[in-house]
């Protein structure tokens, strides 16, 4: 007997919330990126898990693949920005980069 779908969903929810907490807690931009990755993976897990409900179509997995692609892009550009910002402000603490504040 396979563990029920619920367990996967619980895990995904947990991972998402943890990722969210990481994004909110860490005073470092790269750590925030890590949190975002965690959240993306949680949603991917959800997509794959729900795909089991409809085994005939593989839409869930397809979506998961696209998410991975987007995650890659995000990580690449995000890191580039982080480096650039770091070089400019000599910090990667997001609170201190508040020049866009109205």
């Amino acid at each position: 007997m396979m563990p029920s779908l619920q367990h996967l969903l619980y895990l995904a929810a947990f991972l998402f919330c943890t990722g969210l907490a990481v994004v909110m807690v860490k005073r470092n931009t790269i750590m925030m990126l890590l949190g975002i990755e965690l959240m993306l993976n949680a949603s991917n897990l959800n997509l794959v898990a729900f795909n089991r409900l409809y085994p005939a179509s593989l839409d869930g997995q397809m979506f998961a693949l696209f998410v991975i692609i987007v995650a890659v892009c995000e990580a690449a550009v995000g890191l580039a920005i982080v480096l650039r910002v770091y070089q400019h402000y000599q910090t990667s603490v997001p609170d201190e980069i508040s020049e866009l504040k109205g």
């Binding site: 396979m2 996967l8 895990l11 790269i30 990126l33 890590l34 990755e37 993976n41 991917n44 897990l45 794959v48 898990a49 795909n51 089991r52 085994p55 997995q61 998961a64 693949l65 991975i68 692609i69 995650a71 890659v72 990580a75 690449a76 890191l79 982080v82 480096l83």
Partner: peptide
Amino acid sequence: LYVLSFAEFVAITQILVYAGGVLVVIIFGI
């Protein structure tokens, strides 16, 4: 877990792209 959920292709992509790519980039950034 993907493998166990019958999503081998996603699992492979995950390992290749994420573990192999993204994370390397991140560590590089760090």
